[in-house]
Design a protein around this nucleic acid. Structure first.
Length: 787
DNA sequence: AGCACGCCGACT
DNA sequence: GTCGGCGTGCTC
């Protein structure tokens, strides 16, 4: 406003906005002390006073005068810059990427900035105790010149030779006690001891697994083998061209693991030849190690970066990436944020792996962040998988990505589908142990060959299905399995919350044999052991495999031929058992379909494809037996015919019809708290606010009140921007999670931007008006699991 | 998120 | 009395 000569002469910004690594949406404004003016840049790491503590934050904006949001008085000053070395400056690209994550996933920027900051050791909190010294314990009469307050404190401490915590000691009246206590310490009557206490409270529960990150046993190294020669040629041409193009491009690579490994090595080497660097992201720690082994086998050094490493090791990896001494970085989802410049290739290995999605705030999906990074860095993005996600197939179809499918049709086992409806009708374990299944096991055992049984344990939700035809009661609107509540004798859709009495007959065949699903399958292991008492049976699931070492132990047993039958869940596929079993069986393929999740068919199909890969090629006698009550299901048909496109096309049609991802964007809202009525009230209120938003923004009401039939799709004509649909609220399937009641709301929108804005605005309002802080409102953009 | 502060209740 | 466990409110 006014031109003050003094200011005109010194145009250095005197104020900065700082983002702090906390769950706070706002940034905070600080005064730059004169001696630091001119040294501060955007991305600069600074130490600032925040409440009672000093925190490291990141400068995101510079100002010449206090910005409008800042309080008039009471601005504090920056304490210092984190040293002047480059380590303490984030590049604009890193700051921007964290902001993108914050926006994309409706997460506080403060939480997201942590993703791009170098890992730091969690400072141990100290808990102060005070103990009486020998001198202090001596006869009271010998203490002269000790004040009244000091005497009182000392008397208390003398009764407690093990000492008293500071918090207890200074409870209530403070100032006088503090000085008295200080005096006692000064006089040597009392000592202070700082016992280190584990970092406070609710840190991530995972125990630190100490793995030697950099040296891998050779057995862990995955193999890399080229696809058929024509395809190998094609890959080399494609990847060379893309890398040379020096711009963003995206490829979808489908193939078996060894093929993908070979393609990865080729792509990485092509990238390195051009003087650019490589980032590989994968779902789990073991796989990261395996990929490092693949590179080691061809003489390329790769740097590992994952949560299994200690903070120190992670810090070192981060540093190595920054100074460009690491040309290949391999890691789990956190690695997408590694500071790698001159990035030429971003490879997502197992792009459909659900563990790429972070389940804590910020709930980012590493595949999507990888894509954004590649785009910003003008790098080549490769999404690789044995069974790509429908999201990626849609991108291919829309011309956003080029697909390379390298499959050797002679590699698969002989596939046999068994219709369970033809065998027994009771729900005992015996039902799924059909004669063909038992014969298959017996044959393999006789030839001393390996048997694998893949169980989809995830299917054991409380869901009804028909004992005769296998159909299950579904929500008319959402087409997901209805959850069965025995005590209320109700079924309820966990998507839209609609409830109705338990149907008395099957919706398809009118049979009266509706029963809870999976009741017999649980004991299959027992039944197998009983039937083949001499076989050596191993179990591979979440309970038996807790650490990578457990997986290695099972591997060793297998390699030594000490196991005849392996029974396991999804965990089987982490063992790298490809083409090892003569007989692979899926006793109850439909189990996974009963999860009330629109992706359950996709997961089932992926499981079947992976199971098939465990079997030897048909030419070597490999067999896969799939048992189902739904032999006409598109996942089964596609598997049996080897025509993946059959599955993809039908599943895409289904998703499009019902307006599910990837055709729409979904946002899951979670309301939780300790008192059920207020949680339910808040959840309903959120829905009302959202509907109000949509209403006022679009000028037309949307359908979908409780119990009112609503169209499955959107109102409006295709092409127009349609209104978001709001489903729910419905109590979360396991209504109580860690002592909290949870309700869920789903927002279905054309694009995630539209939904996000409304969700954020309404949450703000909700938080303002709900004075009870016990309530928590969480947002999950693009949720990957519906439970 | 983390921290202080205050209140409750379990265990000496 | 001691101390852990929450709920609440605040952070330039």
């Amino acid at each position: 406003m006014r031109n003050q000569p003094v200011q005109a002469a010194a145009p250095l910004p005197g104020y900065v906005d700082v983002v702090l690594p906390r769950r706070l949406d706002r940034s905070f404004t600080y005064i730059v002390p004169t001696e630091l003016r001119g040294q501060i840049v955007i991305g600069q790491s600074v130490i600032v006073p925040f409440g009672t503590q000093d925190l490291q934050g990141v400068v995101i904006a510079l100002h010449h005068r206090p910005p409008s949001g800042a309080p008039e008085a009471g601005l504090k000053s920056l304490r210092s810059c984190g040293e002047t070395s480059l380590d303490h400056v984030l590049t604009p690209a890193q700051v921007e990427l964290s902001r993108w994550v914050a926006e994309r996933y409706a997460a506080p920027w403060g939480q997201c900035i942590k993703l791009v900051l170098p890992p730091v050791e969690q400072p141990r909190r100290l808990q102060a105790r005070y103990l009486p010294t020998a001198h202090g314990l001596a006869d009271l009469s010998t203490h002269s010149g000790v004040g009244e307050d000091e005497m009182r404190l000392l008397a208390r401490l003398r009764r407690r030779p093990k000492g008293i915590m500071e918090r207890t000691l200074l409870q209530g009246d403070t100032s006088s006690s503090v000085t008295a206590l200080r005096a006692l310490v000064r006089k040597g009557l009392v000592v202070r001891s700082d016992a280190a206490v584990a970092p406070t409270g609710t840190r991530r529960g995972k125990k630190l697994v100490l793995t030697t990150g950099l040296s891998l046993p050779m057995e862990e190294a995955g193999e890399a083998s080229p696809p058929l020669s024509a395809e190998a040629q094609s890959w080399l041409m494609v990847i060379d061209k893309q890398v040379a193009a020096d711009g963003y491009s995206a490829l979808l690579l489908e193939g078996e693991r060894a093929t993908r490994h070979w393609c990865l090595v080729q792509a990485a080497q092509a990238t390195l030849r051009r003087g650019r660097r490589v980032l590989v992201v994968t779902g789990d720690v073991e796989n990261a190690g395996r990929l490092a082994g693949v590179f080691a086998a061809v003489g390329e050094q790769a740097m590992l970066l994952h949560s299994g490493l200690s903070v120190k090791e992670r810090e070192a990896a981060w540093q190595a990436a920054r100074v460009a001494s690491a040309t290949i970085v391999i890691g789990t989802r956190m690695a997408v944020f590694a500071p790698i410049d001159r990035l030429g290739l971003v490879w997502v290995e197992g792009e459909d792996d659900t563990s790429l999605k972070e389940e804590q705030v910020p709930r980012y999906h590493a595949r999507d962040v990888a894509q954004e990074r590649a785009r910003r860095d003008r790098a080549v993005l490769v999404l690789a998988s044995n069974h790509p996600s429908l999201e990626s197939w849609l991108a291919v179809r829309q011309g956003l990505m080029m697909a390379c499918v390298y499959r050797n049709p002679t590699q698969g086992p002989k596939i046999q589908v068994i219709d369970l409806k033809a065998y027994g009708r009771d729900s005992s374990a015996g039902t799924v142990l059909t004669p063909p299944l038992c014969e298959g096991i017996r044959d393999a055992l006789q030839q001393r060959l390996l048997v694998v049984l893949f169980l989809n344990r995830k299917g054991f939700a409380s869901v009804l299905h028909c004992g005769d035809c296998g159909a299950m009661p579904q929500c008319d609107v959402c087409s997901v399995a209805l959850t069965f509540f025995r005590h209320r004798s109700q079924v309820r859709c966990h998507f839209c919350g609609r409830a109705k009495p338990v149907p008395d007959h099957c919706p398809r065949c009118r049979s009266l044999k509706l029963e809870p699903v999976g009741s017999g399958t649980e004991r299959i292991e027992e039944a197998v052991r009983r039937m083949f008492p001499l076989a050596r049976v191993g179990r591979v699931d979440g309970e038996t495999i807790r650490r990578p070492a457990d997986a290695r132990a099972v591997r060793r047993l297998l390699d030594a031929g000490e196991l005849d039958i392996v029974i396991g869940t999804q965990m089987l596929f982490r063992l790298a058992l490809q083409a090892k079993a003569a007989f692979v069986a899926v006793p109850d393929a439909d189990a996974g379909l009963h999860i009330p999740d629109f992706r359950s068919a996709e997961r089932m199909y992926h499981g079947l494809v992976d199971a098939a890969d465990l079997a030897l090629p048909a030419t070597a006698g490999g067999r896969l037996l799939v048992q189902t009550r739904l032999p006409d299901h598109h996942a089964i048909l596609a598997l049996a015919s080897g025509k993946e496109e059959l599955f993809v096309a039908q599943e895409q049609a289904f998703r499009q019809l019902l307006q599910y991802p990837p055709w729409t964007s979904l946002i899951r809202l979670d309301v939780s708290g300790t008192a059920e009525p207020s949680v339910a009230r808040a959840a309903h209120r959120w829905v009302a606010l959202l509907r109000g938003q949509v209403f006022s923004a679009q000028g037309a009401p949307i359908s979908g009140g409780h119990g009112v039939p609503q169209p499955a799709g959107f109102a409006g004509v295709a092409g127009e921007s349609r209104q978001p649909l709001i489903l729910g609220p419905s109590p979360a399937p396991h209504a109580m999670v860690r002592g909290r009641y949870c309700y869920q709301i789903l927002v279905k929108a054309d694009s995630s931007e539209g939904g996000r804005a409304a969700v954020l605005r309404t949450r703000e309002e909700l938080e303002r008006e709900s004075r009870q802080g016990a309530l928590r409102f969480e947002i999950d953009v693009d949720p990957v699991s519906m439970t």
